[in-house]
């Protein structure tokens, strides 16, 4: 059965689009048929993160308005077997689409795809309502900051109200060195405060910046720690039981020496 998953956060800049791009690619690598749907009308970004910006002809609003067929607006990502993008319109208003139309669109996509991943715009207004309208699952992205966790809590409340219960949490940009020093909230802190199930933890990783520069999702880079985290998340979505990866920073030379001499373990 196909799943419609909305990726949301409330706060902007926590990594929603990066999460959609990577999880979507991850699921496609697991041989699923995936479509990424950019619901951020007026401020589309997913096409750029995926490196598909030059291939857009039609967009989501064109489909809804009947200017083109759904099939014509879907961009196939040639690097992966079954990965597609439905881009948002860049020059239209957010109100160009209604929640009912979004629901209809998602139902149509369900017939052809295993996963429909929706990139939700920041905020809780019209764009958010559109993005959640057709979804039956939600992933909330947050970072270990007061403002981001606060907004995540607000979103959890709103999702409950819109009958989309049981959202799962992705903690993005965790720095284990700072957690160790007591200068960043840790995983347990955030889970306890938000009272929500954890889907995965993504470490801060320079490779994300590099991969976004190139328009290639970090998940396809075997050396990227964030990529590894996204691969694990994709497998968990597929129902596999994957333990959390070790986020410890590499031991320094002195620490390794101490371990070698049995002074530390």
């Amino acid at each position: 059965m196909s799943k419609v998953i909305v990726v949301t956060s409330g706060k902007g800049g926590v990594g929603k689009t990066t999460t959609v791009a990577n999880i979507g690619t991850g699921l496609a690598l697991l041989n699923k048929k995936v479509v990424l749907l950019d619901a951020d009308i007026g401020l589309r970004n997913l096409d750029v993160v995926m490196g598909l910006e030059n291939r857009i002809v039609y967009d989501l609003v064109d489909v809804v308005e009947g200017i083109c067929k759904l099939r014509q607006a879907l961009i196939r990502d040639k690097r992966f077997e079954e990965l597609y993008l439905l881009p948002a319109a860049q020059t239209k208003e957010k109100t160009a689409v209604t929640p009912e139309q979004m629901k209809e669109l998602c139902d149509k996509l369900k017939q052809d795809f295993d996963y429909i991943l929706i990139d939700c715009p920041a905020g809780i207004e019209h764009g958010f309502k559109n993005a959640v309208a057709g979804a039956d699952n939600a992933i909330i992205v947050t970072t270990p900051e007061v403002a981001a966790v606060r907004d995540a809590d607000r979103i959890i409340g709103l999702l409950e109200a819109s009958e989309l219960p049981g959202p799962k949490l992705v903690i993005n940009r965790l720095r284990s060195d700072m957690v160790k020093k007591g200068d960043m909230m840790d995983i347990e802190d955030m889970i306890e405060i938000l009272a929500i199930e954890l889907l995965g933890v993504v470490p801060e990783d320079e490779k994300i910046v590099i991969s976004t520069n190139k328009g290639e999702p970090a998940i396809s880079d075997p050396a990227s720690k964030a990529g590894q985290a996204f691969r694990n998340i994709s497998r968990r979505i597929e129902g596999e039981d994957v333990p959390l990866m070790n986020l410890e920073v590499e031991n320094s030379f002195m620490e390794r020496l101490k371990i070698f001499f049995g002074l530390k373990r």
């Binding site: 900051e145 007061v146 966790v149 606060r150 809590d153 607000r154 409340g157 957690v179 020093k181 007591g182 200068d183 960043m184 909230m185 840790d186 802190d189 405060i193």
Partner: peptide
């Protein structure tokens, strides 16, 4: 004992959420 910035963040967040919720 642990007067780290993490504890400050947690305390601020908890109070914020009491109001928000």
């Amino acid at each position: 004992e642990d007067s780290s910035s993490k504890e400050v963040a947690k305390e601020r967040l908890r109070l914020l959420l009491v109001h928000d919720r």
